[in-house]
Design a protein around this nucleic acid. Structure first.
Length: 117
DNA sequence: GGTGTGACCAGCT
DNA sequence: AAGCTGGCCACAC
């Protein structure tokens, strides 16, 4: 009912940022999980888009904790360094091999299950 | 204002 | 079994 003082509606992006920032240490989630939490399964692409905008976000967004459904570091190329994402994940205890999180299933963090519930 | 793209996912062939 | 296409919504030109 009120128009936001800022141009456009960054609600979607902000929502994604909030969820990503809520990811605990040593955990990872997938784009689809966040999209599903937001209420749209098909909006998974928007989540990835939001990550791209995370660089414009005033607060640091642990985008390295967000990977695709297969646990593959598809967006590693979008970081300052392509190895930065893997380094961060490994630094948090995740086992990354061949650009893929081996124990992704173990560290998987579902917002709809942790927060939504 | 329309078109294209995009760090995806799921279904169909 | 694997590969391709469609679909979804928001942003940039």
């Amino acid at each position: 009912m009120d128009k936001p003082p800022v141009k456009g509606d960054y609600n979607f992006f902000d929502n994604v940022f909030e969820v990503v920032k809520l990811i605990p240490y040593g955990r990872a989630t997938s784009y689809g999980a966040i999209a599903n939490y937001l209420g749209s399964r098909g909006s998974a692409r928007m989540v990835g888009w939001a990550m791209n905008a995370s660089h414009h976000s005033p607060d640091p967004v642990p985008a390295h904790r967000v990977v695709n459904r297969n646990g593959m570091l598809t967006g590693k190329h979008h970081f300052c360094s392509p190895d930065l994402m893997q380094q961060l994940l490994e630094s948090e205890g995740a086992i990354v091999e061949n650009d893929r999180i081996v124990n992704f299933r173990e560290i998987f963090w579902d917002p709809a299950r942790e927060i939504g519930f």
